[in-house]
Design a binder for these strands. Structure first.
Lengths: 125, 125
DNA sequence: ACCTTGTTTTGATACCTGTCAACCTAGAGG
DNA sequence: CCTCTAGGTTGACAGGTATCAAAACAAGGT
């Protein structure tokens, strides 16, 4: 493979590899920052952060939009909009089954962001 | 009495404790999300993400603004503005020594965010 | 004191974003 | 076919934000 140097590519976010040298150990290249920033940005809204946590902590590994929407004082379209943002950044995936749509987290994405922020080396794989 | 349990309070970010149940294990309460989201938001800009990484990975634990500014194609004021954002969210601190201002990371803050995003290593695939 | 350099603050402006109302689409069932 | 419900899309608008130029502020050197 390539050197593990500038390997903070969020290709992983949509692809699915571990990755990411902690930013405490190595400076993030411009293009990597440009790729990863949107993911942080997506989590940078209280509603989306909550949505993400609800999806990520869903007991069955997935959760119905019909369970997400009523948890907020927001209109359906607004929730849908936020979910789309999370989808577009690769943090979650969605699947329609019959009438309902289910969202599930993308652990690789979370793992990637977490490892970037890691302060102490090697708590994860 | 302070609640110890769902303690995702970003008071820690400005205070200085470990904290944070991973969002994969527990849903984030509204107020916690409101407190933590700004930190993610701050990292949600490519320039700030780079700045944060430059500060966090500074060999001496700190780095001069004079070393940060020339790394970007942006005006001084703009860099200063971004640094202020990082400062305001508690991700970094700054200190003036003589002519120059030095920024250093706030590891507790990074650690807090990282632990929030932490994914169980075992549940994998 | 006066410049000179480094950093932050202050407008000003163009762009981005969160929100809702209204409308559209996809299945399930009659 | 039609209708009903769950979600998503579109359009519009208020508020936020990234950026710069200009000015202010801070330290040092002259």
């Amino acid at each position: 493979m390539s050197k593990q140097q500038g390997t903070n590519n969020l290709t992983d976010l949509n692809g699915g590899e571990p990755c990411c040298v902690p930013m405490t150990e190595q400076r993030i290249p411009a293009e990597t920052a440009a790729t990863l920033a949107p993911a942080f940005k997506a989590l940078g809204d209280p509603v989306r952060l909550q949505l993400m946590s609800m999806i990520a902590s869903a007991p069955d590994g997935e959760i119905c939009v019909c369970d997400l929407t009523p948890a907020f004082d927001l209109s359906g379209p607004t929730i849908s909009h936020h979910l789309k943002t999370l989808r577009d950044t690769g943090l979650v995936t969605s699947e329609r089954r019959g009438t309902w749509v289910y969202y599930r987290p993308r652990p690789e994405a979370l793992r990637q962001l977490a490892s970037l922020l890691a302060v102490e080396p090697a708590t994860a794989v």
